[in-house]
Simulated scan of single mutants.
Amino acid sequence: MCGRMAITLPHEAMVQVFDAVPSNDLPPQENYNVCPTDPVAVVASDQGRRLRTMRWGFIPHWYKKPNDGPLLINARSETIAEKPAFRAACRERRCLIPADGFYEWTKAPEGARLPWYIHPNDMGPLTFAGIWQSWSKDGETFDTCAIVTTPANDTMSQIHHRMPVILPTSDWSKWLGEDGKGAATLMRAAPNDALSFFRVDTAVNSNRASGAQLRDPMTD
């Protein structure tokens, strides 16, 4: 699962890394506490790659309003091709969602929620497999997205049983549909040595918290 993340890669860098044309309405470049329904920069391919703004929280076309049903921030790889909300997007509207890292929580014996920051070992940006959907009703229009998740690898399973599908550079074209079929084969866990994690302060438990200190390692 992925329910919170950090995104600080400058737009100019994303444009170069993904060879994409930027939209003119991209979200703030530094957000250390990206929450569901926040805007995120997403790479989609439609007559070329484009870096676009989307709402994190997939809205199926039959919702009469954005909060008409469950908040769909993740899509399970095992059922994505069958779920009515996701199956068309899985075939036709896949995207890349860049991030620095993401947060997960474990529970202390007394019940407190303990946050962890998960980051790539190579210190480069993560690229999550995503799907997207345009939603429009009564003059409101949103491009919305969800992160595809898969059962956790051995490293991540120490703190959570699921993790985002993380795509290496070599898989970007296939996931976007630029390089033929076979995207389904990419929905797997990253290698065990791809990620590391450390405890961070419980300040990040609040969706109102902000600032680079949120992902500072705890020292005691």
Score class of each variant (00 low, 15 high):
Gln47Lys: 07
Lys107Trp: 04
Pro36Cys: 06
Phe128Asn: 06
Tyr63Ala: 13
Lys174Asp: 03
Val40Thr: 03
Ser196Gln: 05
Ser134Gly: 10
Asn121Val: 12
Thr149His: 04
Thr150Ile: 08
Trp62Asn: 10
Lys65Tyr: 10
Glu104Thr: 00
Asp100Lys: 01
Pro22Lys: 00
Pro98Arg: 03
Pro120Arg: 06
Asp154Cys: 06
Ser23Leu: 02
Thr141Glu: 07
Thr8Phe: 08
Ser77Cys: 09
Leu51Thr: 01
Arg113Lys: 15
Pro27Asn: 07
Gly180Pro: 01
Ala89Gln: 06
Asp38His: 15
Asn67Tyr: 09
Ser157Lys: 11
Ile147Asp: 04
Val165Pro: 14
Arg4Tyr: 01
Glu110Lys: 13
Trp172Ile: 13
Asp216Trp: 06
Asp220Val: 05
Val200Asp: 00
Arg208Glu: 13
Met156Lys: 02
Gly139Lys: 12
Leu195Tyr: 05
Asp220Ile: 05
Val148Arg: 10
Val204His: 02
Ala88Pro: 06
Leu126Gly: 03
Met14Asn: 08
Ala85Asn: 06
Trp62Pro: 00
Ala41Val: 00
Ala13Lys: 14
Asp68His: 08
Leu96Thr: 05
Thr37Gln: 15
Trp105Lys: 08
Arg52Ser: 08
Leu126Asn: 07
Glu78Leu: 07
Ile59Trp: 05
Gly101Lys: 02
Lys83Leu: 15
Glu140Leu: 12
Lys65Val: 05
Ser170Ile: 04
Thr53His: 06
Val204Glu: 00
Ile97Tyr: 10
Val43Leu: 05
Met163Ala: 04
Glu30Val: 10
Ala129Pro: 11
Glu110Gly: 08
Ala184Asn: 14
Asn31Arg: 15
Leu9Ile: 15
Thr185Met: 10
Val43Lys: 02
Thr202Trp: 10
Asn74Arg: 11
Met187Gly: 08
Ser206Val: 13
Lys83Ala: 14
Ala112Gly: 07
Thr150Met: 05
Met187Trp: 13
Trp172Leu: 04
Thr141Lys: 04
Trp175Gly: 06
Ala194Lys: 13
Arg199Leu: 01
Trp62Leu: 13
Glu140Arg: 12
Gly182Glu: 11
Asp216Leu: 13
Leu176Glu: 10
Glu12Pro: 06
Pro191Ile: 12
Gly111Trp: 02
Met1His: 08
Glu78Cys: 12
Pro115Phe: 02
Thr219Pro: 02
Trp116His: 13
Ala152His: 02
Leu126Lys: 03
Val21Gln: 08
Arg188His: 15
Pro84Leu: 11
Asp193Trp: 14
Ala189Arg: 13
Pro27Ile: 00
Thr155His: 05
Ala108Val: 05
Met218Cys: 03
Thr169Met: 09
Cys2Phe: 09
Leu71Gln: 10
